[in-house]
């Protein structure tokens, strides 16, 4: 992998934040922990919001997704260098590298014992020791969170002048460096059947003709078919947002709407405890989409009703005016 040629001239210590962010943009770096949010945009927004704390996210909280842990083992210094580059962009922000308990990595690595803290919002809330409003972003806490693979890509782009062309991916039991764009069907694991991307809890079923994307950190077998909900209620205490996943699951099954689903941060804690193996996170994603769509349709209908009523009123008024003019003409023209 070190044979890759440089795409850009490396930037040195004297490069300012704008040059670094422009380079990150040009290298095509996006959130590689699954979010796929353009890193340059995230950095610009964090600068605008005067974010003063940056966290590297090495929590790897999806079962079986060990790519981030392996990356930290192989290239710890490069990841830390990437985090320091982010710190330079954010006016010397405070830096921390969140890793799971038992990682035994040197500073700035900090072991975080919160379950499912690989979720960006949860991790930011943990470091800020407070909770954000509905669907809050880490910048609401004054924190910016970057996945460790993103930080490694930032290091390579800025210090070595390399565009983002490959990434480390957990494939089944192993972690491999794969070119972005590799068809998942070409991986040996594809022979075993349907695949799932980015983990059993918060991941998604692999689409037809799916490829390794910048945000693909794990490829594994599809989930087993789910059993019906048995009303055990385990999902309720598992939810960090105090939602009752069972009720949201009912709303999904009934093809209904649920405003509360927008409080779901899609961390996968409910999916992890569900004894029926229901793919709750993906149900809630669909429920969010459906709820948004229905609300948009209602808004459209209300606007159309108002315009239709206004038109009917106008047509009636015009008819009355014509009638009055006609009557006036008839009464004034009686001379002939």
């Amino acid at each position: 992998m070190d044979a890759q040629v440089a795409d850009f001239a490396p930037l040195d210590e004297s490069a300012d934040a704008d040059a670094i962010i422009a380079r990150i943009d040009a290298a095509g770096i996006v959130g590689m922990g699954g979010g796929r949010y353009p890193s340059a945009r995230k950095l610009r927004e964090a600068r605008a919001a005067d974010v003063r704390f940056a966290i590297g996210n090495g929590m790897a909280s999806e079962p079986g997704a060990s790519a981030d842990t392996t990356l930290l083992g192989q290239h710890f210094e490069a990841v830390v260098a990437g985090l320091e580059i982010v710190g330079r962009c954010l006016n010397g922000a405070g830096l921390a590298l969140a890793v799971p308990p038992g990682s035994k990595l040197p500073a700035p690595a900090i072991e975080v014992g919160v379950p499912f803290a690989g979720d960006e919002q949860r991790l930011a809330a943990h470091f800020a020791t407070r909770t954000a409003p509905n669907a809050g972003q880490p910048s609401d806490y004054g924190v910016a969170v970057f996945n460790v693979a993103t930080l490694f890509a930032i290091f390579e782009a800025v210090t070595l002048g390399r565009a983002l062309r490959r990434r480390i991916v957990s494939v089944g039991e192993t972690d491999q460096w794969l070119a972005i764009g590799t068809p998942l069907a070409e991986l040996p694991i594809a022979a075993a059947g349907e695949l799932r991307v980015n983990g059993p809890l918060t991941g998604r079923p692999a689409r037809a003709n799916a490829v390794v994307e910048a945000s693909t950190f794990s490829v594994g077998p599809a989930r087993a078919p789910a059993d019906p909900c048995i009303r055990c209620g385990w999902c309720a205490p598992a939810c960090p947002e105090s939602l009752v996943a069972e009720h949201l699951h009912d709303a999904f099954e009934a093809n209904a709407e649920a405003a509360a689903v927008f409080d779901c941060i899609e961390c996968g804690a409910c999916t992890a405890v569900c004894p029926s193996g229901i793919d709750l996170v993906n149900e809630f994603r669909a429920l969010k989409e459906q709820t948004r769509h229905r609300a948009a349709l209602r808004e459209r209908a209300d606007a159309a009703r108002a315009r239709s009523d206004a038109r009917s009123e106008r047509l009636a008024r015009q008819a009355r005016q014509r009638q009055a003019q006609r009557a006036a003409r008839l009464s004034s023209n009686h001379s002939w």
Partner: peptide, 9 residues
């Protein structure tokens, strides 16, 4: 009833 209809007219 009218509130539930899509108002496409």
């Amino acid at each position: 009833v009218d509130a539930l209809l899509p108002q496409s007219q």
